[in-house]
Design a protein around this nucleic acid. Sequence first.
DNA 1: CGCATACTTGAAATAGTTCAAAAGACGTGG
DNA 2: CCACGTCTTTTGAACTATTTCAAGTATGCG
Lengths: 248, 248
Amino acid sequence: MARCTTNEAIALFLNRLALRSPLGEEERAAVLNLPKVSEIDDVERDFVHVGDRVNHACLVVDGLVARFAQIQDGARSFVALHIPGDMGDLFSVVEPNVTWALHALCPTRILRIPHHTLRELAERYPALAMAFWRDTVTDANILAQWTVNIGRKDALASVAHLLAEMAMRHQANGLGNENQYVFPITQADLADAVALTPVHLNRVLKRLREENIAIKEANSVRILDFQRLAYVAEFDPAYLQLTRDDRT
Amino acid sequence: MARCTTNEAIALFLNRLALRSPLGEEERAAVLNLPKVSEIDDVERDFVHVGDRVNHACLVVDGLVARFAQIQDGARSFVALHIPGDMGDLFSVVEPNVTWALHALCPTRILRIPHHTLRELAERYPALAMAFWRDTVTDANILAQWTVNIGRKDALASVAHLLAEMAMRHQANGLGNENQYVFPITQADLADAVALTPVHLNRVLKRLREENIAIKEANSVRILDFQRLAYVAEFDPAYLQLTRDDRT
DNA sequence: CGCATACTTGAAATAGTTCAAAAGACGTGG
DNA sequence: CCACGTCTTTTGAACTATTTCAAGTATGCG
């Protein structure tokens, strides 16, 4: 992804909202003119800690962010991955006490949006309040799917599902296409997203590669056969809510 | 739980909201006077199906409800359990297309609240809009914890965690105390909530029983040693957000 | 009393983990 | 631009938590 400006980043976020929520001109303009946004060009690895109390939400501009929990024996478990255009902790507007840490998985640029500006937008424009709420519901939906993958599918299906999901999400956010996307994540981190060991994840990736289904490279994923990937993953994109519903 | 009236049920829901969100007298009255609520005394087993489009949310009055996905080989995976006082699909107000089915795990009574009345409340009272949003964020938080349990903890810790969580949630909803609560779920269903096989779940329950930690009976759970239960589960109730935060 | 549903137990099989070590990639500084 | 250290990926072999299959015992209900 070419580096983008602050305004372009906010436009990405607006696109994400507008993908799922009907927004008028006024609301769009209000989002694009968000005041007091501060940019951090290369955020530290761990930039939101459990126990913190935050007063801003983070919009990923460039890079990759994980939300995760740390277990006592040192094991980690990811509960979300956020790509450019995602405001991974938008929910913190209503729940500022941090129970899940945020972690940059590669050099990552973010925008910090103060909660009070988001809250003001929500109060002034009910359509935006709904859009924000819907955005967090979508994230919860993705998490529910992760639970299913981790709990009831075998390792191959689980990994395949994540690769397919990330392909669709990149496409939806206007990044890459369904067959190739930037994904600068190590195998160790990827393992924490599907709750496998790095060793086993490596073997699964090898199998996907050898069967010409998908190739995970250092900084990207190339999907050679999306149909077969979706088949082994039992992937149905409905849960991503990629189409807007204006009937409400 | 003694059977309660429609009004008492709505009061339970209001309590749940008020536990986490600051609400004024006006907002409380507005919730208690929700119009056009319809009651279903003994809902059918599967009462919300994938692919449906719903125009009401379901408040559990009595009984137990699971949200779940069905995998191709027939396996199921629960992504939420809802007890009396929970409005399990409140999120459907912003996302009426059903991607997760609802299932009554025992004779269950629900209240159906039309989306448009909830939407009207949210537009009229921003504090309620925030409270609704926050309620769904809490559910997402619980789901995130499930993901961690299923993905990175062993079976004993996973089951212990669920029993501890349900104890706290019952207490928070004003049902039972932290050492005993009504939980009319079969072992097969419980297995789907922690992503284990019924056989293995049975062995884990046996172990918890034999070590005098907790006993799962047909319709209830008795916790003999909450401390030890919490210890083996690595249970920290922070993610349940059981204290209100009025600083926002 | 008999049938259905739920629970319990045993033994064998296996998917995924653990431990260990080698091979490759990558930047940095001499 | 080569040598070195670090981080990441890859592979092998032994191990184990959980599953699978199968059968038996309770429990409840008409």
